[in-house]
C-alpha cells in the first residue's frame, strides 16, 4: 500500500493521517474525499498521495478553488447517504467556506429534529511556529467552538492523529480536525501506530501526557510539547506539573480536568489562538464553575497575544505561547 513508506515501524504524524484516510476509504465504500489538489497532486502535504489512483476520481475529487462549494457539496452528499472527508489546503482558508459550515452543515441535525445526520469531516493543516505568516498559521478553532453542532479535535501525536481521524470518519456528526502541520514530519514524535479498529481513539477523551502533583497544564496541539518542556523547567524549580492534552475541544472532557485539579489544585491553560474568546478562556470558565472549590490559586492562561500571526521569526515568537511564557505563568500560579 502507498502508505507504507517508512522503514522503521515508527510512523510520523503525516503517515498516521494517511493511514487513517486509506483504511477508512477501504472500510467504507460510501466515503468520498473532496478538496483542492488532493488527487493528481495528492494534497499540498501529501496526506492523500496515491488515493486517487487507488479509489478513482469519483471518490477522490479534485475540486476547483471554491471552499464554499466544497463544503456545501460535501453537505449534500451527506444528506444523500455518503460520508465525506473535506480537505482544507490550509485551515486558514476555511473562512472562505464559513457559511456552508456554520449555517448549512452544523445546524442540519438540529433544524431537522434529528432527521438528517452530517457525517462530514473537515481536516486541514493548522497552527503556527513555522513562519507561515498571517494566512498559513492560524488556529481558528474558536470560531467553530462557538457554532453549535460541530465537534472539534486537535491531535498532538501520530497515534491520536490516526485514531481521532478514524473516529471522526465514523461519527454521524460533522467533525473538524485541526492537524498540526509543524508536527507532520517530526521524527522525534514518531511512534508505533496500531492498524484497523485497534487504532481508534475516542472523541471526547482527554489524555494525561505527564503526571504531576503541583499544577495542571491543560493544552492541545503544538503546545503539548511546550508544556512538557515547561514541566521539565518546573521540576528544576521543585514543582511537579501534570500535562493534560484535551485532544477534543468539543465535546470537552471536563471530568479528567476536574480529577487532575482535585490533585494539583492549580491550573494553567495554554492555547495558540488569540486570548479573547480563545478556547483557554472556555476551559477557565468551566473550571471556575465546576472546580472552584479545588483551586488554591487563581488560574492563568497563556495564549497568543490578541494579534494575527506575523511572519518573521522574532515577531512570530513574540506573539505565540512559548516554553518560557508557560513556565513563568506556571511558576506564578505555583508560588501564589
Amino acid at each position: 500500500m502507498a502508505v507504507a513508506e517508512q522503514v522503521s515501524s515508527k510512523k510520523n504524524y503525516l503517515t498516521a493521517l494517511k493511514e487513517a484516510v486509506f483504511e477508512e476509504m477501504q472500510r467504507n465504500p460510501d466515503m468520498v474525499c473532496i478538496g483542492e489538489d488532493i488527487g493528481f497532486l495528492g494534497g499540498a502535504f501529501g496526506v492523500t498521495e496515491g488515493l486517487k489512483a487507488m479509489y478513482g476520481p469519483e471518490r477522490v475529487i479534485d475540486a476547483p478553488i471554491s471552499e464554499a462549494a466544497i463544503v456545501g457539496v460535501a453537505c449534500g452528499m451527506c444528506l444523500n447517504g455518503k460520508t465525506t472527508l473535506v480537505e482544507m489546503q490550509f485551515i486558514d482558508f476555511i473562512s472562505c467556506g464559513f457559511d456552508q459550515i456554520v449555517n448549512m452543515t452544523a445546524t442540519y441535525h438540529y433544524r431537522t429534529a434529528g432527521e438528517v445526520n452530517m457525517p462530514m469531516v473537515i481536516r486541514g493543516p493548522a497552527g503556527g511556529y513555522g513562519g507561515g505568516a498571517l494566512y498559513h498559521s492560524q488556529m481558528n478553532e474558536a470560531w467553530f467552538a462557538n457554532s453549535p453542532g460541530l465537534k472539534i479535535v486537535c491531535p498532538s501525536t501520530p497515534r491520536d492523529a490516526k485514531g481521532l481521524l478514524k473516529s471522526a470518519l465514523r461519527d454521524p456528526n460533522p467533525v473538524m480536525v485541526y492537524e498540526m502541520k509543524e508536527l507532520y514530519r517530526q521524527n522525534k514524535i514518531a511512534e508505533e501506530v496500531p492498524e484497523g479498529d485497534a487504532a481508534l481513539v475516542p472523541i471526547g477523551q482527554a489524555s494525561i501526557r505527564r503526571e504531576g502533583d503541583d499544577v495542571t497544564l491543560v493544552t492541545y496541539g503544538n503546545n503539548v510539547y511546550h508544556c512538557l518542556a515547561a514541566a521539565d523547567n518546573l521540576a528544576e524549580e521543585g514543582f511537579s506539573a501534570e500535562v493534560l492534552d484535551i485532544r477534543t475541544l468539543v465535546p470537552l472532557d471536563e471530568a479528567t480536568i476536574i480529577e487532575s485539579l482535585k490533585k494539583t489544585n492549580r491550573l494553567v491553560v495554554v492555547n495558540e489562538a488569540p486570548r479573547t474568546c480563545g478556547f483557554a478562556g472556555e476551559v477557565l470558565a468551566r473550571m471556575s464553575e465546576e472546580a472552584f472549590e479545588y483551586l488554591d490559586a487563581p488560574p492563568a492562561r497563556v495564549t497568543r497575544l490578541d494579534t494575527p500571526v506575523p511572519w518573521v521569526k522574532p515577531l512570530e515568537l513574540y506573539v505565540l505561547p512559548s516554553v518560557e511564557k508557560i513556565t513563568d505563568a506556571a511558576l506564578r500560579v505555583c508560588k501564589f
Binding site: F90, F93, L134, P310, W311
Partner: peptide, 23 residues
C-alpha cells in the same frame, strides 16, 4: 515591515492594493 510574507504587500500611496493569501 515583514509582517506578512511574499506578495502580501502593497502601498496606498503608490496605488497598489495589498494582497492576502485568500485567492
Amino acid at each position: 515591515r515583514a509582517r506578512d510574507n511574499w506578495s502580501h504587500i502593497g502601498s496606498r500611496s503608490k496605488h497598489i492594493i495589498h494582497s492576502t493569501s485568500m485567492l
